[in-house]
């Protein structure tokens, strides 16, 4: 029998191959689901990464929107092709993340959370009020000739999600991860271990911001249209919290499983019940139930089941 770690690695690899190969089938429906799940996965992993350092973000739509706009402007104004525009988007997100971390200094808990919310809302207002840059409330289209085939975009999104998982798995093995966890448990004590919380926060938000912005940029290439209400929609923030919570926070597999479940549940209800409101209602109920009944998510539930079985 194979050792457990090998089985896990093989499962991850098989999943990656399946997600990356799916666009080759050329089914528009499959591609759409793939894009939704993979882009949510990136934002969810990014949110989980910030949470890992004890930072509760309510501003992931800010990164998402910034990335979307960076990619859109790079493509429309500079004629940047897909990979370059995505690089610019990720860089923009990283810079914004570092700026936010430096700015919020040592704000903790609820104070940090509300600052990120304000950050994202400010960007929305600025986006609406600077029509020369963003197209204002009317929005902007991606120049049609630039768009590659849907399968290519889908592949890029899938690649982004795989990269996000690899980055998170890699980070989990580093001292950085331990520093983040120490900070999460007690920032004052972590200082005694020689951790500089500010540096740690800047690094953490640089990675997380870049990841979420990349997802935003990718989604722009999928959708082709942007306005400030779509770009900085609070919905992204909500989804980025629900997916890790449903799957299991502070784990790698949690946000991945959670993203799949969240997209299936919200899209399922949207398609099944038709009327608007229901899918969001389901997400809200999910959030409440998760917090009250299973704060460690599906993964936590599964682990408890395994632990019970293992007992003689």
């Amino acid at each position: 029998m194979m050792p457990k770690a090998r089985v896990k690695a093989a499962a991850w690899a098989a999943l990656a191959v399946a997600v990356l190969a799916a666009p080759a089938l050329g089914s528009p429906v499959l591609n759409d689901w793939n894009v939704r799940i993979c882009s949510l996965m990136m934002v969810a992993l990014s949110w989980n990464l910030t949470l890992n350092a004890g930072l509760i973000s309510l501003g992931h739509s800010a990164f998402w929107g910034l990335g979307s706009y960076a990619a859109l402007l790079a493509a429309n104004r500079l004629g940047a092709p897909l990979p370059l525009s995505l690089l610019i988007a990720a860089l923009a997100g990283s810079l914004a993340g570092m700026g936010l971390a430096a700015l919020t200094g040592n704000l903790r808990g609820i104070f940090f959370a509300i600052s990120t919310l304000a950050f994202s809302e400010i960007l929305r207002v600025v986006g609406l009020m600077t029509p020369d840059l963003t197209g204002g409330a009317e929005g902007l289209y991606l120049t049609p000739g630039l768009r590659p085939a849907p399968a290519v975009v889908t592949f890029a999104v899938a690649l982004g999600a795989v990269a996000a998982v690899v980055v998170c798995a890699g980070l989990a093995l580093t001292r950085f991860n331990l520093a983040c966890r120490a900070m999460r448990n007690n920032e004052d004590v972590s200082k005694m271990f020689g951790i500089n919380p500010l540096v740690c926060r800047v690094q953490c938000l640089a990675v997380a911001g870049g990841m979420a912005s990349l997802a935003g940029g990718l989604n722009l290439w999928h959708g082709g249209f942007l306005d400030p209400l779509v770009a900085f929609d609070l919905h992204v923030t909500v989804l980025s919290q629900i997916a890790p919570l449903l799957g299991g926070i502070h784990t790698l597999v949690g946000p991945v499983v959670g993203s799949v479940l969240t997209v299936f549940l919200s899209e399922g209800t949207r398609i099944g019940l038709g009327a608007s409101g229901y899918s969001q209602l389901v997400l809200g109920v999910l959030l409440v139930v998760c917090v009250l009944a299973m704060p460690s998510g599906v993964v936590g539930l599964w682990r408890r089941v395994l632990a019970r079985r293992a007992r003689p």
């Binding site: 959370a113 229901y278 969001q280 209602l281 809200g284 959030l287 409440v288 998760c290």
Partner: peptide
């Protein structure tokens, strides 16, 4: 935070 956020989402969409 997530609980009250969730309640907000539920009431809004209700």
């Amino acid at each position: 935070i997530l609980l009250t956020f969730g309640i907000s989402l539920v009431l809004q969409n209700l």
